[in-house]
C-alpha cells in the first residue's frame, strides 16, 4: 500500500493486538475498515467517534484510497475541526498527528487514568516510548 499523501510504502505496525498502517515519510496513519470494526467491538465509544464523521465539501484536493485508488471523501470529525479523508468502503486516512489530536481532544478531558481506550493507548504507546516498568 502506498501513502495517499507522499506515495511512500506504508508500514504495518502492530501493538497490543491493534494494527495500523503508518507512513514513515509523513507520519500519517491509515485505519483499515476491518480494523475499525475490531476497535468498535473492543472499545465502542472511541471507535464510534471515528466511524461516524460527517461528510463535507471542501476544495482541498482529493486523495486516492490506498486500497482501491478511488478519490476519498473529505469528512469533518464531529466536535472538532480536523478534516479527514474517508473511503466509504475501505477505511480512514489521518494526516500526521491528526489522529492523536482527535483522541487527545476527546479523551484528554477525562484525565490520564481514564485513557485506557485501545486506540488512544496504542498511539500513546507507539509514539511515546520509555514507559517501561523497572524490575
Amino acid at each position: 500500500m502506498k501513502c495517499p499523501q507522499c506515495s511512500d510504502i506504508l508500514l504495518t505496525l502492530e501493538f497490543d493486538r491493534i494494527e495500523i498502517d503508518y507512513c514513515p515519510g509523513c507520519r500519517g496513519v491509515w485505519l483499515d475498515a476491518g480494523e475499525l470494526g475490531i476497535l468498535l467491538e473492543r472499545d465502542g465509544k472511541e471507535a464510534l467517534l471515528l466511524s461516524a464523521p460527517g461528510s463535507v465539501r471542501r476544495k482541498e484536493k482529493k486523495r486516492a484510497c490506498p486500497i482501491c485508488s478511488r478519490g476519498m471523501e473529505k469528512v469533518l470529525m464531529t466536535g472538532s475541526d480536523v478534516l479527514l479523508d474517508e473511503c466509504p468502503s475501505h477505511g480512514l486516512w489521518f494526516d500526521g498527528g491528526e489522529l492523536s489530536k482527535i483522541l487527545e481532544a476527546e479523551c484528554g478531558d477525562r484525565g490520564e487514568e481514564d485513557r485506557t481506550g485501545g486506540l488512544a493507548r496504542l498511539l500513546d504507546e507507539i509514539f511515546t516510548p520509555g514507559k517501561e516498568e523497572r524490575t
Binding site: 506504508l10 508500514l11 505496525l13 516510548p129 520509555g130
Partner: peptide, 22 residues
Amino acid sequence: ACGLRIKVAPEYPKDRIACPRC
C-alpha cells in the same frame, strides 16, 4: 525490542528500518 511489531511490504525500498516507537 520495544514491543512493536513491524510488517514490511516487499515493495519497501530500503534494507534498514527505524522503529517508529523507539
